[in-house]
Design a protein around this nucleic acid. Sequence first.
DNA 1: TCAAAAGTGTTCAAGCTACACCCATGA
DNA 2: TCATGGGTGTAGCTTGAACACTTTTGA
Lengths: 245, 245
Amino acid sequence: MSQTQNYIDTTAMFRKYAHSARMLLALDSIVFGFDGEELKLLLIKRNFEPEKGKWSLMGGFLEENEDLELATNRILYDLTGLKDVYFEELKAFGKVDRDPLERTISICFFALINIHAHDQDLAKAQNAFWISLKDRPNLVFDHNEMVDLALERLRYRAALHPIGFELLPEKFTIPQLQKLYEAIYDTPLDRRNFSRKILSTKLLIDTGEKNENSATKKAILYKLDQTKYQSQFNAFHYFMSDASR
Amino acid sequence: MSQTQNYIDTTAMFRKYAHSARMLLALDSIVFGFDGEELKLLLIKRNFEPEKGKWSLMGGFLEENEDLELATNRILYDLTGLKDVYFEELKAFGKVDRDPLERTISICFFALINIHAHDQDLAKAQNAFWISLKDRPNLVFDHNEMVDLALERLRYRAALHPIGFELLPEKFTIPQLQKLYEAIYDTPLDRRNFSRKILSTKLLIDTGEKNENSATKKAILYKLDQTKYQSQFNAFHYFMSDASR
DNA sequence: TCAAAAGTGTTCAAGCTACACCCATGA
DNA sequence: TCATGGGTGTAGCTTGAACACTTTTGA
């Protein structure tokens, strides 16, 4: 047993900070997707206790020898089969009674994925389903509160930073992007101003291809300029003028 | 022993989620203050183990029957004697080896306080000192990383929302407020444009008083319009046009 | 040839930036 | 009366909002 493993043994004889409580640390994930029309959540129909049969977020416990960041990626991978998923930490939830079985602190985060790229068999194995935000069911514990906060934070962040692209396929059209923003903010936008605003960021590259799925005029397919995306990510872009109210 | 206490007992016989690890949950606080010239941090000269003699953030452990939010307030109160302190959660830090004694997850937050209002005896009892950001010492564990992130977040948030006021006394002048923003962003600002921008938010109320401490023309003392402050807090105010780079 | 969706241009108002001038105060 | 710091005004530019017309496509 290594020195490090000695230190983190939770049996009393190895404890150094003797008087404080040890507790479970859960990670709960809010996974957003976009099907071209509506914003969706990947939710679990629980086939395990507690609250079996009810809906909840996907979660898991942080393990003894696992970095927090790695655990987050593990949980997202087990649910979607995707690596390098975009996510942001939301908040830690720590009411004493939030989990009826045992004191558990949950660190909650939201993830944005391309709904067409995830592994459907894995989702099925976890009993996970895509549910439109407009039909969202009641969730267990404090998970409703988590989703409310996640949606608020998504709106806040997407108004200022180019995170919306994470919800789209690699190649997408400006009208598709507009539908995404309209879904996120549940509001109609002016086509002409939206297009000009997006193009003025210089974040998009014209692929030269067009959207062949269209029955009318085919829209230009763009992709993200990865270099500019990374360098300008933290600059404010003001995709929505004041979406925070 | 109540039902609830049964559930959260950490001895093995009561554990319901049997296979996952229990661990310590720390709360680490970055306390910002402003003395009229410089942005400062309230840091602890550790007179306890581990890393006795070195500098660190103020922290504490979440207790068994304590809500997370209450624990945060407790830690801030024990350090400053202040209640209702403005704070925001920053991030959870959870590397396996971040604390050498025992696996500890830290939920880190930053607080903004009026430097003149805190209890100096309490700070002394904790061995806490105000250190200018420009002279900040090396800190223990991952606390340097926490301070870096806190400063980044403060700049991000203060550019968009009226949180700077939390660092000032109840009554303050516009030149004082400008010095604060100049300290936060470490950049000079135009007096005339700054004043117009601040007044255009309509968040300030002219108290009718003037700053008697001035040797030259006495500046008008303003106070926050609490009603507008609360209702407009989440609206974007753009105090700094693009401070996030 | 027509309906539906996509691309582009113009005008007006508001806000931002970069400046200069005047006022109040105490030494 | 002078140096220092505080309050206000303006011209020019940029940005954003509102709105109309033209093009492409397949049925």
